[in-house]
Design a protein around this nucleic acid. Structure first.
Lengths: 196, 196
DNA sequence: CGATTTTTTGAATCATATCAACGTACGTGG
DNA sequence: CCACGTACGTTGATATGATTCAAAAAATCG
């Protein structure tokens, strides 16, 4: 049941069977059908979720009622509103399923418990946050320095299958573009390719 | 000498005198005069720096030779290229002093040692990274959702003294604008204010 | 004080957003 | 399984906001 999860943890970590049993006891499994929410704005984020199957998106709705996608979370990733999870303030993020998905939920009590009971888990989370910070900084730099075209091709090079799994207008939103602009960028690129 | 540093650590952490002594032994002090570099692109980032006095900026140079400022680091903040520090790859960031500044440097060996010798330091860094990640995510959201005008006024509300300490064109760079655009935004805002 | 850097202003240009219309794919219930 | 309705993607025309380039004004530094 928790295979993918232990797989993820075992990158740089070795868990004993006893420790694995602790996880099994303290986490819960949740299934979400396409379009169902893991978190809606206004709620307090009660859990960190590991995606064992499927895919979610995290988005914010701006004052013009545009959805702005902050992050995608396919299987093997964690998703949560960490800020709300830590402070227990209401979230302004929405997280919903783009496909039927399966989550492994770690609520706050479990999270605190597991981090002390399993020091490796604490270290793992440390490395996760550090890695997430580095990745986000790179993304911010890309937002600043890359052209629209480059942003799109870079996304494709990192996630080659993303166009198969995610509707185009959501990719536009993730890149900070309108759907129309992304459509035109793609057209231009396909023409370029044909030229060669 | 390390007062501001211990002050920072003591938020949520209590260090014994013995532990403080360990820090004193393992860190080094470095003074930078205005315009001097803590890190230049192409170098490997050898230390994490705590700013005890002064201010630095972290920037990247894009292919059109524009400087893009990623981050400012006034006293009380940490600055480093964490990615380069961890992986020991060459950095593509530049970090230099905007004023005469004083840094407390923790090199890799010291960092590793102190994190194991002082568990509180490990926890502190965990919280730092997590906080940095949350803050960066908020910044990314602001970049997406705020108008140019709002980005500028929000920056001012968070760092009211920033215009006094940082040249305007660097603030423009931080916000992802040209200096001309920021100048015009400021003019528009000052007219609005006069109207009232 | 003069020299250099920074900020401001103006005009032209460019990239993306916006609005509107059309074509296409999709899945849902009859 | 087909038909219909809703979503999604494309295309065109126009508007908007920011950039670019150039030059003057203001501030800062040695």
């Amino acid at each position: 049941m928790l295979d993918t999860f232990f797989n993820k943890l075992s990158k740089g970590t070795t868990l004993t069977e006893a420790e694995k049993a602790l996880f099994t006891q303290h986490v819960t499994i949740k299934k979400l059908r396409k379009h169902q929410y893991f978190l809606q704005e206004g709620e307090i984020c009660k859990s960190v979720a590991f995606v064992s199957k499927g895919m979610l998106r995290c988005y914010i709705v701006d004052e013009k009622n545009n959805e702005r996608i902050i992050q995608f979370a396919p299987e093997g990733w964690f998703i949560s509103d960490i800020s709300s999870f830590i402070t227990e303030d209401r979230s302004n993020l929405n997280i919903d399923a783009l496909e039927d998905t399966e989550l492994i939920l770690i609520n706050k009590a479990a999270h605190v418990y597991l981090e002390t009971a399993v020091p490796e888990f604490f270290k793992f989370n440390y490395a996760q946050y550090r890695g997430a910070y580095i990745a986000l900084q790179k993304r911010l730099i890309d937002m600043f320095t890359l052209s629209t075209e480059e942003k799109y091709t870079k996304l494709l090079s990192i996630y080659p299958d993303i166009m198969q799994r995610v509707p185009q207008h959501m990719i536009a939103s993730y890149l900070g573009l309108t759907p129309e602009t992304l459509s035109r960028v793609r057209k231009k690129l396909s023409v370029k390719k044909t030229d060669a």
